[in-house]
Structure formats: C-alpha cells, structure tokens
Amino acid sequence: MSVLISKEKKVKNKEFHPNILCFCCNWCSYAGADLAGVSRFQYPSTIRIVRVMCSGRVDPSFILEAFKDGIDGVIVTGCHIGDCHYLKGNEFARDRFERFQKTLKLFNLDKRFRLEWVSASEGKRFAEIITEFTNQIKELGPLRLI
C-alpha cells in the first residue's frame, strides 16, 4: 500500500511537461534547430521536430490532428519572408495561418499555436522561441484530449 501511495504522490507532484510539436522547414529552420543543438544552447526537451520541405507544406489540418492526438502546443517555423527556398511558400503559410488563427479561436486553441520565422543562423533565437513557447503552454496547462 505504502508503495502505491508514494507512487501516487509522485504523480501529483510531477511537473507538467507539455508535448509540443514543431514543424521546421528543411532549408532554414531545421538548420537553425540543428545549430541550436550543435552550439549547445539550452532549450526544453519538450518539443518533437517534424521536418518538412517548406513551411508552405504545413496544412492547418495537421495542426488540428496534432491537437486531437494529444499534443499541447504546435509551432510552425519557416524561413524569413523573402528567404523561402521555394520563393513564396512562407508567404502562403503566413496568409493561411492568419486566417486559420480565427478558426482556432473558435475552439479556444489560438494560444496554443504559433508561427515563427527562424533562419539557419539563428540557433539562439530558435532556443529562445522554444523556451518561451513551452512556458506559455505550461501556463495554459495540459489540453488532455486523449
């Protein structure tokens, strides 16, 4: 019995570690994330990176699906406007997610999603963004959809 209780206590005290999904475009942001790792900038181990060829590849349905499958926050990163490897992919992404933000608001999920531009040389910025976003999600608490 005592074993069980101590286990229960542990669960109660356990800090909330959000599950965060991060879409990185292959040409800038993924390299940025890589740089953050190589240069040993500290950032929370809560994120799972999915590499896509361009931020324009990310469809809003991916984000809803991620939430449905138990993710607490989603962040999409791409090259800075004008730097996209495919010229306009990130502009499409920007316009699309601007509209999609309103839909997320209907579900009260708008604070759990973010779109950011990170270039290949901005390893530090990548780490900062992830830290900040993780803190934001921690404040919001778990979503608990599964």
């Binding site: 449905k68 309103k102 608001k105 209907l106 579900f107 009260n108 999920l109 959809l145």
Partner: peptide, 9 residues
C-alpha cells in the same frame, strides 16, 4: 472533446 470550449463569434 470535453476540454474544448467552443466560442463562436
């Protein structure tokens, strides 16, 4: 989902 609060504009 129970944890989703729909808020229509």
């Amino acid at each position: 989902q129970k944890n989703i609060k729909i808020e229509r504009p």
